[in-house]
Simulated scan of single mutants.
Amino acid sequence: MKTQLATVVGSAVLTAATVLGAPAAGAQTAAYPTTPITNVSYGASYISGALTWYNRSVGVDGALRAVGCRRAWVGTYDASGNPLGAKSTSTKCDVTYSLDGFPPVPADVPGGAAYVVVCLDDASASSLDCELFYRP
């Protein structure tokens, strides 16, 4: 009986030591929120992809499909509607152009941009279609 009890107690102590000696789970950083870019189109031209909401900028990934000559324009705004920053591509003609290397759009205020406007422009930078996307 004592041997069985000693075995059970010894096993319990060994298990407790293993659990208590295990390193704590590492702190996980939350991923930045993203918003899909949808409904920005004019004829067969469109902008698709995603916005990534960083603390003081907004990242843009995706594609500009230009039928004819088009540009992608992205502007950031604070909660009062004040512009914070803007970036655009150069004019692209009859091509699908990757926006994955698009530089982050500045939003250098505490909390970052409240919303973003994404526009599909013509070759003269006149807007053909714009959509507003709020920070999630």
Rank of each mutant, 00 (worst) to 15 (best):
K87Y: 08
S98A: 02
S41F: 06
V60L: 04
G26H: 13
A86Q: 03
Y97L: 12
P103Y: 08
P136T: 14
Y54F: 08
A50H: 09
L14K: 11
S80P: 02
Y32S: 11
A72C: 12
A17M: 15
V67D: 14
V19F: 01
C130E: 09
P103R: 07
D78N: 05
A72I: 01
A63H: 06
V58T: 04
V40I: 14
D122N: 14
A25N: 05
A27E: 06
V95S: 13
R70G: 00
R71Q: 15
A30P: 04
G85N: 09
T91N: 11
C119S: 10
S127M: 15
P33E: 09
N82Y: 06
P23V: 14
G10R: 02
G101H: 04
R135D: 06
A17S: 15
D100M: 02
G43C: 04
G62K: 01
V74N: 03
W53P: 10
A27W: 04
D108V: 03
V8A: 15
A72L: 01
T38F: 01
R56M: 13
R135M: 08
Y77D: 15
A50L: 06
A125T: 14
Y115C: 07
V116F: 02
Y97M: 10
A12R: 06
V95P: 07
C69S: 13
N55A: 11
A125N: 10
A30C: 03
A79T: 13
K92R: 06
L14S: 14
V60A: 08
A6Y: 08
G49N: 06
P36N: 10
L84T: 06
R65W: 00
L64G: 05
V109Y: 03
G21I: 00
T76P: 14
S11F: 07
A125Q: 09
A72K: 03
S124C: 05
T96S: 09
R56L: 12
D78G: 01
V74P: 01
Y54P: 11
F102I: 00
A125R: 13
P136D: 10
Y115L: 01
A30S: 14
A114G: 14
G75R: 03
G62T: 01
V40K: 01
V19M: 10
A27T: 03
T3Y: 14
K92H: 05
G101E: 01
A30I: 07
A24K: 11
G112C: 12
C119E: 05
I47V: 03
G111T: 02
A17R: 08
A30K: 09
D61N: 03
A12Y: 03
V117P: 02
C119P: 00
A123Y: 02
P110L: 12
L64I: 08
T91L: 01
S127G: 09
P110Q: 10
P36V: 08
P136Y: 11
N39I: 02
V95G: 13
A79I: 13
L84C: 11
S98C: 07
V60R: 04
W53S: 05
L120C: 12
V9W: 12
A63S: 11
Y97A: 13
S98H: 10
A22P: 02
T52R: 04
D121S: 10
A16W: 07
D108Q: 11
L64Q: 02
L99A: 13
L120G: 05
S98F: 09
A123M: 07
S57Y: 07
A107I: 09
Y77M: 09
